[in-house]
Design a protein around this nucleic acid. Sequence first.
RNA 1: GCCUCAGUAGCUCAGUCGGUUAGAGCGGCGGACUGUUAAUCCGUAGGUCCAAGGUUCAAGUCCUUGCUGAGGCGCCA
Length: 482
Amino acid sequence: MKKRTEISAILQSPEMDSTVTVMGWVRAFRNNRFIALNDGSTPNNLQIVIDAEQLPEDTVRKIGFHACISATGKLAPSLGGGQAVEVLAESVEILGECNLETYPLQPKRQTMEFLRSKAHFRPRTNTFSSVFRIRHAVAFAIHKYYNDRGFYYLHSPIITGSDAEGAGEMFRVTTLDLEHLPRTESGDIDWKEDFFGRSTNLTVSGQLQAEIGALALGKVYTFGPTFRAENSNTPRHLAEFWMIEPEMAFYDIYDNMDLAEDFCKYLIRYVLDNYYDDVAALDARLAEEEKSLPADKRRPMGLIDQLRFVVDNDFERITYTDAVRILQNSNPYKKGKFEFPVEWGKDLQAEHERYLVEKHFQKPVIVRNYPKAIKAFYMRANDQQPDEPGLTVAAMDVLFPGIGEVIGGSQREERHDALLGRIAEVGIPEEELWWYLELRKFGGAPHAGFGMGFERMVQFITGMSNIRDVIPFPRTPKSAEF
RNA sequence: GCCUCAGUAGCUCAGUCGGUUAGAGCGGCGGACUGUUAAUCCGUAGGUCCAAGGUUCAAGUCCUUGCUGAGGCGCCA
């Protein structure tokens, strides 16, 4: 293969008069003379100038939207106003034709729904190439952030035998012949016959295993795929998504909140610092899109302004009890505008969270100390507070505008007896969690952690309105093409 | 899982009260064009009206069921 130069490198530091070979996909061919070429290395195109009479007629005819070409020529300052440099092509080779009579994409605005059905081509569009570059950037920044702070990347299992995680419906993993299931004497399916000799599922969370890591390595994080078989049909849910779960020994709920806030800001700052052109392209696209919306449906600020705002301001921190008080004093509450009741002991609904984040504080909010009854068994019980009608646990949720809960976490119950009591209360068989309990019995430590929805964070940073458009191959109920 | 809306040309949509040969813009194709920037100009082709059943003299239009998609809610990250 001829050695090619990536367009990002050329645009960054062009060496005028040098001869380069570039390869990529044609975004536009204008006036029989100008090719806008993109190779995915940057959102920006490189202009190739050809002399149609100096090239084979057949080659010129095949230069068209999304055809793949290689072009060789001298770099020169551009005579046109739209770009600084261009390649004066001496030769052009067609690497892959693109027959536009049958190719589904078109050089025009397409809906996200349509492009979703063409997941094999959508990364070639401006929007999706920017989204996927940013997705990469966020993933990389996650590892960099934790590595730089002395965390160890722990690989939690994808296949789990635990039924006790309680984070939702699970996908079963089995090699049993579904047409001829082995049965026990009592007629139940005999999971002892299955591959692992027990019933197994895809993981819904790596947290319990991350706790094992934290109680030995001090600070760990997991970052991997997570599976929920919930029949959730919303722009914020996927059946297969990625989650980051840091877990730290010797952290309490406040340390946990500090880390969560700093982590969120770091990821946003990293993308702004290193992928500004991509964010700017998405910002412009959103601004264009919003022009056609009525004023009340528009975002309060542009994408970049919003990202800067989140980075530059402290997150609001309140207790669940405060949140209920604020909501009960709110206008929508007094006017009966909320669909769901606001009452201490009941979980906050999306409409309540949205009021707190988007109306009342107008910035990210961390709510902590939720009622014990509505939270998971592993969260650390707080002492009874005089101003709280019931017992709470040291849980915390980080709420973002537009996407809602981006992080959920807690200080974990490290007291063996308290945990044992809680497990009994919620009715999980003790033997399911024998190793989890032993972590408390033998050299236990106070510890805390949280889970961040990776796609939700990418969604926030890119401004994409549907989570299916920030993952290359979305898996949702009734949909697993590609 | 519940509720709402939608499905008509490659894409985005219009299609009146059920009535003749189903339209537009964009895109494609053919042509023109050597400084364009979503290039522009001229010409042209293109339809299983989501599927099945039903009502009717007559269905893109009304009814039933199903499928698919989107949005809202719940569950959550």
